[in-house]
Design a protein around this nucleic acid. Structure first.
Lengths: 200, 200, 200, 200
DNA sequence: CATGAATGAGTCTTCATTCAT
DNA sequence: GATGAATGAAGACTCATTCAT
């Protein structure tokens, strides 16, 4: 990477950092592009060198932490199913919480309407999460932890809805609702009953 | 109710109907107050006779159908718990689906941030739903269907999250996800395992 | 017309007057909407109460003087054909000249691309002029001044092109080209030779 | 010409070709410098190695075909006047038509306001055309085809206006108007009557 | 209660152009 | 000569909201 590319990376990083802080502090709608560039110390127009639209920076902000989860799951193949799921859910919700409620709200608003997200080359977040969870269950079917006739898709749907639902409830709750805590309780108390009929 | 009040009622109704149709068709952000008043056949300024802010009409639109659910639940006291819950969830999701995905998206966006909704004298939708579900469970504890030590609040949280999560997933899914169908499956397959530890 | 409508008329008139003066002085591209509203003494947003886009005011500015020509032609039915045409051409070019070269340039630029002119309920200026000229010739065919086999459409094309061409040359010429003078010479010297083959 | 100059020629050519195609397709205002460089496969900044301003590429694009006309006319000295004029007009309009309606529109818009075109070292297109046509007529006066007292300047004005007028009408007409066809008719039917008083 | 003209803050976005590499 | 990141001026346009009629 030459000097030019390096400087570009830096500018991009500055924008994301500034954007993250401002959104956490005031919320997406309350700030404008100029606020972000001013805080980042770059020209207003430079924002559009890296993001097509104001909204796009949120996608980038939230993309970062989620990337790591997938890797982690690879290193847990030998764990027990419920343990793996528990880990996944905790990590998922940790990422959500660490972004802050305002970033989460804006992110949810953005992805709520798939038409809002052009150039979504990574596929939709929801589908991505869906597939990741499903693959965990399917792996468990393959290796015999779950019965052959386990309705993987159905379970995936139900569990993903629970996760996204906790996130939604958090956003709606004015911060009083602790997503990580409830995720913890959900895993501890409900995961086993939900899976029980299909466990060997 | 005199003539003036009657005519006022009519105007209000016209605005709500027009607003509902437009939001269904194009989404809240894509329409403006004038679109609504034009479709309703009234003057632009009249909108503000009935709604303080543009956003307020959405609350009114969605308030209507949900109002009936509470009444229906009163007439089901003798049903079995799981049957009552199933009915509640179905009705809830029917209301959601009947509004159309765009209304649902906008409604979710609006309530996602409680600060967006001042003058919220009816309390927040989420709290309202939460309390309604909790009261169903508490009734069941009272009449002995559920054990005395049932963690009503925890179960309410988990189940409400599931409902809101299905709604969120629907919004994100470009309409392919059928919320009513998945609610049906959830009730049929998961409700009993979730409650089983607490059923007598 | 009540007080409200009257005041609206006034505002519109103020905008057109201010716009005309500014465009004459500086040219359309060199001014912005705020310049116009400031000069008109109204709020910036009010411009958009009367015109959908910045460009639209030019159409209104130029529409006014041309409207009168049609009326005048009605009162000249008894004149000789060449006299009528001469009058029409002079009046046409007077209107063009009276708007000033900058208005004329902008108007030409605007109508140069028909796609630029939405809501063009009056039809395109060019078609309108075309039909008006053609009707003069057709009237002359009807009343025997011109032969029955006169190619009205062809002559219309050629003469309209001459008029628009003079206008175009004026715009290009940095004001040195006098459209009215050349129109005069054209009528005096060329009109008769052009029509001669078809005159009785 | 060394290697560097050669490569520069290539880049310049690529830009002009790309620019021409894009303007034909979308019109000048609808594209930006980056569109051109992207299509040409060069860096954005390289545009400014060859053109001082965005507009300048249009002048280059339209300059190309017209250059040939002058040469051709040299080889027609022995033709009859009307034949030479007819040839000139046809070639002129062929060049116009071959550029496509969007290039023609943009070119007309550009030259419509002479102030737009600084560094116009070649003189203005209009003057150039004017002089070329006038020289044809003056040659004809010299060699006795036209009378000594023929008002060459006046005729030039009138005929140039007709040519530019046809071009203008074409631009306004949404492409339905066929400039070459009408030019043909004009030459066939009107050229002789216009010149008749001055022919020997 | 109804009207609709007037308001003007607010913002996104575009893009020609520059210049360090 | 080529690159493409950075610039920042510039402006159009929207629209929720008000208020005199």
């Amino acid at each position: 990477m030459n000097k030019r590319q390096l400087s570009a990376q830096t500018t991009r990083r500055k924008l994301i950092t500034a954007g993250l802080e401002l959104i956490k502090e005031k919320g997406f709608d309350a700030i404008n592009v100029e606020d972000i560039t001013r805080k980042a110390g770059v020209a207003k127009g430079s924002f559009y060198t890296y993001f097509k639209r104001k909204e796009d920076i949120v996608l980038d902000i939230s993309r970062t932490p989620f990337g790591e989860i997938a890797e982690e799951l690879q290193n847990m193949k030998k764990m027990e199913l419920i343990e793996r799921l528990t880990h996944y859910f905790h990590r998922f919700m940790e990422c959500v919480e660490s972004c802050g409620i305002n970033v989460c709200r804006q992110w949810t608003k953005d992805v709520l309407d798939p038409n809002n997200v052009p150039d979504n080359k990574d596929g939709q977040k929801w589908k991505y999460d869906f597939e990741m969870l499903k693959s965990i269950l399917e792996d468990a079917i393959s290796n015999g932890e779950l019965k052959k006739d386990t309705p993987a898709e159905l379970l995936t749907h139900i569990i993903i809805s629970e996760l996204y639902g906790m996130m939604t409830c958090w956003c709606m709750s004015d911060g009083k609702f602790e997503p990580l805590e409830w995720t913890h309780k959900f895993c501890k108390i409900q995961l086993r009953p939900i899976l029980k009929p299909y466990l060997h």
